[in-house]
Write a protein that binds this DNA or RNA. Structure first.
Lengths: 259, 259
DNA sequence: CGAATTGTTGAATATTCTCAACAGAGGTGG
DNA sequence: CCACCTCTGTTGAGAATATTCAACAATTCG
């Protein structure tokens, strides 16, 4: 299985000059009421605000290296971040996707257990690791909120395990599209919803989708074609799809004909 | 794929008379310094103590039903609990195993997202859900400890996803045996370690192992035989195995010959 | 001891992967 | 503006891995 992996060099050029940085203003922030920031008191928000910096990260850029000490935590303001794990021989898997208002970073652990990379252009609200972890013990509300996020992440992860363990290729692809369709309204990608269906852009390439689903590029491609042939989806172009009837896709997500 | 599932009836007979109940004495508890109880102050321990009840659960018995409102949380004192998720058509997967000192229950959520069943005879330290969740806001130390457990569970879950997505059958079985071998000293199962290797009992049947690994019973059986033939493991009987050299097993866990 | 359960093995089948060729989209430079 | 190149995605043929179905062996329980 040929693997597409970022170079080691790329992993190290963290926080490089290509980032655009600006001061944070929580009052006008798009995710103020959805991210960990929601449910925080004025006191906690201002403590966070003092720590934070806004940053733009272009698609493809590394945010956190696997196994490295992590230097930052971050809220995803817009765009999609992918979290990847890699086997020594290069086989890899995307263990999670982060969308707008999700939180990036593994608290209470020195080394980061995965590799985080911008899948699309991404806007981040960054907290230096040291400062953020110092904040936690004094602000139980903040830690509680992080705990909630972690529990949801665990739920999603367990759900995804069932997909990897027991679903066939077509069901996996359908499930993936469904998952994206649910999250896409939160993304800054194109998204239209009307009686005729839902239309949006995929934030990931075929290679990345295959790394989400434990399949090969070719299998993903074939199953996309198959769903298209069945009329479950329409392909506007490689990155843009239309779902005429969500229910048909839901059915494909776990009742794919074995033949 | 034929599925082996507990009857709906079994799911409902929670907390039945077959449980043996006794008062809790934290002072003499085997997991006092490893479970969520470690790192708790005297005040918190006594609050927990008042809530808790000891209970024995025989192998095969349901502890929590999938989708049901959960009535209890629990520490695993001894034995192994399996957490299962099921697709409508019966395909299922074991999303997690709990060993001595692990914590059972999904806080802050009304319905339980998985089905929990005793894989071996199990000793539990049970907390009624209502009382336990009322305790949390007032005892940040307890919530913090739970958070740590949840983060570790998430780490393990993400690691397992990589196995399901990218490892071949032989590697999966080897990884499973390795995981059990690491946890087994905490279990009340037979376990001997000496220069010659490690010897222990498997807490799961072949069917359960296949549900952990996203394989069929037959494939698990074949790969076990294959590892035996290679000399990586020895089978004393179906449930009891010897690992002469852990490193050979580690190698098999992610370098299995593709041929 | 016999029945039921659990585990193993074999043969045929199915799904997915690998390798290879090709097609479409996007970018560059003459 | 078009030829050319690269990158990404699709499609086909053959191979490999795991599944299914079936028979049989070992173990457990009554």
């Amino acid at each position: 299985m040929a693997r597409r992996s970022a170079t080691a060099a790329a992993v190290c050029e963290e926080l490089s000059l290509s980032y655009v940085e600006s001061p944070t203003r929580c009052g006008t922030c798009a995710i103020r009421h959805k991210a960990i920031c929601a449910a925080l008191c004025a006191d906690e928000i201002s403590a966070l605000n003092r720590l934070s910096r806004r940053r733009s990260v272009p698609a493809g850029q590394t945010i956190l290296g696997e196994g490295e000490a992590h230097t930052i935590f971050a809220n995803i303001v817009s765009g999609v971040v992918k979290l990847t794990k890699t086997l020594d021989d290069g086989r890899q898997h995307i263990i999670g996707l982060l969308f707008a208002s999700d939180f990036l970073g593994r608290a209470f652990r020195r080394d980061n257990p995965y590799f985080a990379e911008a899948a699309t252009d991404v806007e981040l609200c960054i907290f230096p690791a040291a400062g953020f972890e110092k904040l936690l013990p004094d602000h139980p509300g903040l830690e509680h909120r992080l705990f909630q996020f972690t529990l949801s992440e665990l739920d999603a992860c367990q759900e995804w395990m069932l997909l990897l363990a027991r679903k066939r290729a077509e069901e996996r692809v359908a499930s993936f599209l469904l998952m994206i369709a649910k999250r896409v309204p939160n993304m800054d990608c194109l998204h239209t919803e009307n009686p005729g269906g839902v239309r949006f852009q995929l934030p990931l390439s075929r290679a990345e989708i295959s790394d989400c689903l434990g399949l090969t590029i070719e299998t993903v491609s074939r199953q996309m074609t198959r769903l298209k042939t069945k009329g479950v989806i329409e392909l506007v172009n490689y990155r843009e799809i239309v779902i005429p009837d969500i229910r048909a896709l839901q059915q494909a997500a776990y009742e794919a004909s074995p033949a």
